[in-house]
Design a protein around this nucleic acid. Structure first.
Lengths: 193, 193
DNA sequence: CGTCTATTTGAATGTACTCAAAAGCGGTGG
DNA sequence: CCACCGCTTTTGAGTACATTCAAATAGACG
């Protein structure tokens, strides 16, 4: 009953309905991959060949600038899709690194296979449109927040919105998601309770 | 030869090919609307019923916080799509205002009609997936920049990337896009060459 | 246990904001 | 057509938010 595809099929079913044949077309394209803590799934500058669906564990996408400063772009936990969308779509150099924060199980779907899937089962155009629409709205809200709120307000919202992530990642990583230094996050936390 | 649909059809043709019948199905759903400077197409808190394609002129989407501070979310000039995606998709209260910066001509496409169009001409699933993918990538890059760069660096990138917008909007609006005060933008500009 | 990294704390500094006031600019009406 | 009004832009002083650097403490992991 617990196949590695259970979670992803429920995820897909939130937006489109598939018959058995379509389920088969889809799942044959998925490759189950197990990664250990600190494993890198994608390196900044490389071309991103896969989009990943997280079955279990936790991933982090982050950007490293010329001063070696890290900015966390997103976290991925169970039931989330994650990739470097720019690199994946355009097959250009990746803007970000993708690493496992703990031992994780992911399903990878290659660009080539996804392009085939769009032709074979056009419903997936709709599915990924939905997924990306939601991701776009989240990023837009994040832009608004990062431009209009103080770090303290952004931290408060983050811990309310993503309690399941807070438990699993370090403060340093949260700080880099908020765009502040770990030292400053520490002082924010000190003056809260 | 210059119908109000020329530009939008060329925009669509970048991603999908339509036969004559499909062109007709599409264009009948589009309503040409002319707006004057300062007209509001969408008010924060209202439900956004349309997605807009800009034929000419310039629009601005902005968020106003509880302290009446404005943050510009995006500008829309000719050949751009613009809407409050969150409100449009979910038919919930809009996060942002949408106003004309100058007298402009837009084509509006309603949520209801777009949902019909997806059924009648499923290629549009692909088209809007493409449009939104690109918008998502742009927002992600903007998040990275707003979190990892100084205001001066962001300003330099903005004027390089969007010279056609710089010409048409005030510094106050650019400042609110960068998430800084107009006073500070002025000092940044003063110390450049 | 020892080592390595994360977190905390504090002092000095830099980036960006607030408030205020003056100067510039554009549209509008007389 | 020009004078005025309102808004934008500039400039400056004082302040707040957040960083850097340094050092001490606490945790995690082999």
């Amino acid at each position: 009953m617990t196949s590695p595809f259970d979670l992803i099929l429920r995820n897909v079913a939130k937006h489109i309905s598939l018959d058995e044949k379509e389920v088969a077309s889809f799942t044959t394209l998925l490759q189950k991959v197990t990664v250990s803590k600190k494993d890198i799934l994608l390196r900044q500058g490389d071309v991103c060949k896969y989009i990943y669906f997280v079955n279990s564990g936790a991933l982090r996408a982050y950007y490293v600038d010329k001063h070696d400063k890290e900015t966390t772009i997103m976290f991925g936990v169970a039931d989330w899709w994650i990739t470097d969308m720019y690199s994946f779509l355009n097959q250009q150099s990746a803007l970000m690194n993708l690493e496992a924060l703990e031992s994780s199980e992911v399903l990878e779907l290659s660009k080539v296979d996804l392009d085939k899937l769009y032709v074979e089962v056009p419903k997936f155009e709709r599915f990924f449109r939905m997924i990306i629409q939601n991701a776009y709205v989240r990023e837009q809200v994040r832009v608004i927040q990062s431009l209009s709120m103080t770090a303290e307000e952004r931290y408060t919202i983050f811990i309310q919105k993503y309690p399941q992530i807070v438990q699993r990642v370090t403060q340093k990583q949260i700080a880099s998601y908020l765009g502040i230094t770990p030292e400053f996050l520490s002082t924010i936390r000190a003056r809260k309770p």
